[in-house]
């Protein structure tokens, strides 16, 4: 650990962070390494050999030719094969459409919570279709990070007609008060209003925060007046 601290002090110096002047040894070594780095920077740079340039451009050209050939060869197909190809493509597209969702696939590949959250927020700029909205509602049941769920609910507020029983099911399973409140705000603004029975069941949960319980009572009182 001591050696690590010493090495870290040297690296700080190399990165332009002043080090403790009391540590003369670190100061001296850092100076030597700085000199070494400047010598490394002075090493002459080699040039790429023209044959490598040629190889890379040949590779790029081949890619272009392959792509053009592929698109041309599609046009030259026998009409019957073309018909079957189109039919098969439509079937495949339908299959992909039913089983896969572009946004969903991209979302699943994201490695961290902030990236997921940013991705969801950016969907505000997209035209989401019904499948996308259904996926987001399903995600509300699967996702564990409360702030991501709040961002999803905020996004779904743009689709008030889609706030339905699925949405309520997700609320019933939700343990975090701030997320429950986001759900309830969305329900309050929803065009669908017949949630009374489910909300009564929800309000009987023993673990509810008092603010959430008051919010449910408020929504129920509005619904009873309508």
């Amino acid at each position: 650990m001591k050696n690590e601290q010493f090495d870290n002090e040297i690296m700080d110096y190399l990165d332009g962070i002043p080090i403790n002047s009391n540590n003369q040894k670190a100061f001296q070594q850092a100076g030597e390494l700085k000199q070494l780095l400047s010598e490394l920077h002075e090493l002459p740079l080699g040039k790429v050999h023209p044959t490598t340039d040629a190889k890379v451009y040949e590779f790029i050209e081949n890619l272009e030719i392959t792509m053009n050939t592929e698109s041309k060869s599609r046009l030259k197909l026998d009409p019957k094969i073309l018909y079957f190809t189109i039919a098969a493509s439509i079937a495949l597209l339908f299959y992909v459409f039913m089983d896969n969702n572009g946004f969903e696939d991209q979302y699943r590949l994201l490695p961290s919570n902030p990236e997921k959250l940013g991705f969801i927020y950016d969907l505000n700029n997209e035209q989401l279709d019904s499948e996308d909205v259904e996926w987001l509602k399903a995600e509300l049941k699967k996702e564990t990070h409360p702030n991501i769920k709040v961002t999803i609910v905020d996004l779904l507020n743009n689709y008030p007609s889609k706030i339905d029983n699925d949405f309520l099911n997700a609320l019933q399973k939700e343990p975090i008060p701030s997320v429950q409140m986001a759900f309830l705000d969305a329900l309050e603004n929803s065009v669908n209003t017949d949630f009374s029975n489910e909300l009564v069941v929800f309000s009987q949960r023993k673990d509810l925060d008092n603010t959430v319980r008051l919010k449910v009572a408020h929504i129920l009182s509005i619904q009873s007046k309508q």
Partner: peptide
């Protein structure tokens, strides 16, 4: 999106540093 020429531009930008 299929614009292969972009790879050539990236090559020109990075070939020097990567080669070295």
């Amino acid at each position: 999106n299929g614009e292969i020429k972009s790879l050539g531009i990236l090559y020109e930008r990075y070939k020097g540093i990567l080669h070295n």
